[in-house]
Simulated scan of single mutants.
Amino acid sequence: MGQHGDKAREALLDAAEELFARHGIDAVSNRRIAEHAGTANHSAVAYHFGGRDELVRTLITRHAEDTNRRRAALAAGLDDDAALPDVLACLILPWVEHLGSLPVPSWRARFVHQIRTTPSMQEVLANASVPNALTEELNRRVQAAGGSMDPSTQYGRSWILGNMVLSVCSEYEARVQDGVESTNWTGVGYFLIDACAGMLAAPATHPGNFIRSPSPVSLL
């Protein structure tokens, strides 16, 4: 595809990410995306991506290379006996710092929050997720840090933490856009690392048997 086609694809991706973040996935039509991207071709999504699902899949994986690069660089300095906060940093900081590298306003965190919470997109999300050996190893080390904690309790806490990180980043992204907060994504990242480490290390007073399968601290 030529340079003009590449620019048209990027404009559609930018438009879709913003509209999905602001209004929700199911509330935005392909025609509205095309119009917001500045094209009169209302079939532009189908032309450039083959359809809506492929557009969404492309958006999901759009920034994975940058996040994976940051994660690999951080994990390269991790000792075998690294403490829980250091392991969590390898999972959380690359995502948060990537958000901080985006121009303001950015829509990434809010888009990911929408895609993770829209029932109609769960199959698309599952099909777009590519296994990553480093992320899997980091999650294994986080789980191992739980020691003798009941697995279901650990799964439940990881489930809460994944949602917490995403929700905090989504709201902070909006607050930066509105001028309520100055941009300090690194500070947000370390705050989340401490909060996650505290929850994972806290004693359990009752078996947490409401979740029975692993729910890693995973971000897009």
Score class of each variant (00 low, 15 high):
1 M>G: 14
4 H>Q: 15
4 H>E: 15
8 A>N: 00
11 A>Y: 02
11 A>S: 12
12 L>F: 13
13 L>A: 14
14 D>Q: 09
16 A>E: 01
19 L>M: 08
28 V>Q: 03
29 S>I: 01
29 S>D: 04
33 I>H: 04
36 H>N: 06
37 A>D: 02
39 T>H: 06
40 A>V: 09
40 A>F: 03
41 N>K: 10
43 S>F: 10
49 F>L: 03
49 F>K: 01
53 D>A: 14
58 T>A: 12
59 L>R: 01
60 I>A: 08
60 I>W: 11
64 A>H: 09
65 E>V: 13
67 T>E: 14
69 R>M: 02
69 R>P: 06
69 R>C: 05
70 R>W: 01
71 R>P: 00
72 A>H: 06
72 A>Y: 02
75 A>K: 02
78 L>Y: 04
81 D>C: 04
82 A>K: 01
84 L>T: 00
93 L>D: 10
94 P>M: 03
94 P>K: 01
96 V>G: 00
99 L>W: 00
101 S>D: 11
102 L>N: 01
102 L>F: 04
102 L>S: 00
106 S>T: 03
107 W>K: 00
108 R>T: 12
110 R>G: 01
112 V>S: 11
115 I>A: 12
117 T>D: 09
119 P>G: 13
120 S>H: 08
122 Q>Y: 08
124 V>A: 15
125 L>N: 07
125 L>C: 11
126 A>M: 15
127 N>T: 14
128 A>C: 15
128 A>S: 13
129 S>Q: 15
130 V>E: 15
130 V>M: 15
134 L>H: 12
135 T>V: 11
135 T>K: 11
136 E>P: 04
136 E>C: 12
146 G>F: 05
148 S>L: 14
148 S>G: 06
150 D>Y: 09
151 P>Y: 08
154 Q>G: 05
155 Y>N: 04
157 R>Y: 05
158 S>V: 00
158 S>P: 00
161 L>Q: 02
163 N>I: 04
165 V>S: 00
165 V>H: 03
166 L>Y: 08
166 L>Q: 14
167 S>G: 10
171 E>K: 07
171 E>T: 10
173 E>M: 09
173 E>I: 09
185 W>H: 01
186 T>L: 13
187 G>Q: 04
191 F>R: 13
191 F>M: 15
191 F>Y: 11
192 L>T: 04
193 I>W: 05
193 I>R: 10
195 A>W: 06
196 C>N: 09
197 A>T: 13
199 M>K: 04
199 M>D: 07
200 L>T: 03
201 A>Q: 14
202 A>D: 14
205 T>V: 11
207 P>Q: 05
211 I>K: 10
213 S>I: 05
214 P>D: 08
214 P>Y: 10
215 S>D: 03
216 P>S: 05
218 S>Q: 08
218 S>V: 09
219 L>G: 00
